[in-house]
Design a protein around this nucleic acid. Structure first.
Lengths: 341, 341
DNA sequence: GTGAAAGCGCTAACAG
DNA sequence: CTGTTAGCGCTTTCAC
């Protein structure tokens, strides 16, 4: 199969220890010739240390476990990319597990990863507040494993993990502020499902901005959506009938639905009605009127989650960190100055 | 840290072997009481075997290595999902590595995965024919590692790996055939970059269909694109000026470019000019006239790649397999019967 | 400068 | 039915 230290030691006529020492670049004073000889042989055979053996004694696998709901979701694949790129630079590799929105799988994957002795865990569960029993179990297993863990994107209920996430309150605020600065007063909001913290934050950010600009938040201008395209069209239909001049859709899919509906109603997007979305999915740039939206630094968040877990591995007693990244406004063509008509 | 066989053995008052035996469900005749007692203790402590130790002796890690160009590309993330879902069902886990189109990284990742003693490799390299030296090295390393490997989506040059891919010849054929059956005769083609095998196959499929329907392939009706949106609009502009009644764009991005250009020229997509794409990206369904296209069974391909590598691991002498999946036609609104005007 | 020896946690003969 | 023993490939004291 593969060459071992023993093989190299035999061929070099030295002990296994010596070989191990030089291959690990240890300070130990090894004579230059021995070092050279060993290195040459190792290179010749393309020696690759057996990491199971090494892990067994060092108790470090240089492997990270990544639990996520669905790698095929662009948000998570972007996140995974950021994590893996950063990991590579630190000589870690990452095992990923899809839990497909199934709380039991979240737990199975967790156990699997612990069994594989990963050095750290990066977690975005699909666990929602209502999965109380699963959450308890999940947290207990993480705790007992003594493995460092960080939560990404969303905090895991019932426990305050070190975390990296995006400040959706700020995002919602930014979106509404942009509209307000353009002079809009009657600003509708199509929310996400309000049992999700993310959706709530985006909505609350919108409310905050209105208040800050002295505009009274009008419940009649809020349409409860579900992050799907359809609710965007329904929301727009409703809001336009309420006389809004601008719409904040809490994700791009709904913004796109709204975009369509506004057009279907014979109005011009970005002129008669301003629309702003949230997420900055690739679709935004492809529209006839490219969509103004809130951009999330997903990949950056991934990289930082990775950096954080590596810090934590090195120094488990590290002080708690809950890092928030700020989303940013991307102005394109669907928003413009309010004009009294 | 974690409990070991020894801990359980001590508490149960039996030998380590016995514990190992019952925990591995070995046939060995163990008395029911012993078994029960051991199981109970293991459960109590939430025993998780140390897989490094196990791997060290069994030489199996139950881990697969996945090398791909970029997990954030929807094609690859869908593929990864298929692979991981299947892997989970067979108790394998998967380490993924992004090589970011960098041939050197392909090789680094390969070495890394071999070092981690993965049982099998699933590979989609970004290596192109021109990276001859890298390819040679890559193949040599795989060969010397004696680790089973399968190529997904594209074969790796200079070596015939077991592989799973999509029959793009058939895909191109299907696209053109659809148009021909609708009565179109002057069918333009916007190709991908023809130094890629994938793009060539799609184009060749188109040519084959034309021939089969007795339509002479006209080089003036072929526009060399690059899979980017822009070349779709340029291609459409050119092809419409050549008097085509239908366009086969070799991917959806270009089809979308063509769609826009056709509209910009004052023609009605799906009536004046039929357009068919290739890939079936989410965008297709979102258009005003949803895009007719060729769908690729990506996730299925991933699952099969995984199944294949697992077979290969079990039985390395298995006969060679090069599995091709058939793409399928998805008719939506951008293609229609040819009407003489 | 270098080597001998112990041991990480587990499996797998081989004994009894 | 169960225990003893050896050993996987590596790191790490501790001697020399």
């Amino acid at each position: 199969m593969s060459y071992t230290l023993k093989d190299i030691a035999r061929e070099a006529g030295v002990s296994i220890t010596t070989v191990s020492l030089v291959l690990n670049n240890k300070q130990c004073r090894i004579s230059p010739e021995t070092r050279k000889k060993v290195l040459a042989i190792a290179k010749k055979y393309n020696y690759n240390p057996n990491s199971s053996a090494r892990a067994l004694v060092t108790k470090k696998t240089y492997t990270l476990g990544l639990i996520l709901p669905d790698i095929s979701n662009p948000f998570f694949s972007e996140l995974a990319k950021g994590i893996e790129n950063e990991a590579q630079e630190h000589n870690y590799s990452v095992i990923f597990c899809n839990s497909n929105q199934n709380p039991q799988k979240d737990i199975n994957n967790l156990c699997l990863l612990i069994g594989k002795q990963v050095d750290g865990l990066i977690i975005t569960t699909s666990l929602s507040d209502s999965d109380s029993e699963y959450i308890r179990q999940f947290n207990r297993i993480v705790y007992e494993s003594k493995i460092s863990a960080v939560a990404v994107d969303r905090q895991i209920p019932q426990h305050n993990y070190d975390s990296v996430s995006i400040d959706h309150l700020e995002g919602g605020f930014l979106a509404a502020k942009h509209l307000l600065e353009l002079g809009h007063k009657k600003i509708g909001c199509i929310t996400g499902p309000l049992d999700s913290a993310t959706a709530r934050e985006r909505y609350n950010g919108y409310v905050n901005a209105l208040e800050m600009f002295g505009v009274k938040a009008d419940p009649n201008l809020v349409y409860p959506g579900n992050f799907q395209l359809d609710s965007g069209v329904e929301g727009a239909e409703y809001l336009v009938s309420q006389g809004v001049s601008a719409i904040f859709a809490c994700n791009d899919m709904m913004a796109f639905g709204a975009y369509r509906q506004v057009q279907a109603m014979g109005k011009i997007v970005g002129k008669d009605i301003s629309i702003i979305g949230y997420d900055d999915i690739p679709l935004c740039e492809l529209l006839e009127y490219p969509l103004t939206t809130i951009h999330q630094p997903i990949s950056k968040m991934g990289r930082n989650a990775c950096r954080l877990i590596i810090e934590l591995i090195k120094e488990p007693q590290h002080k708690r960190q809950n890092i928030k990244f700020l989303p940013s406004l991307v102005v394109r063509k669907t928003t413009s100055k309010y004009e009294d008509s």
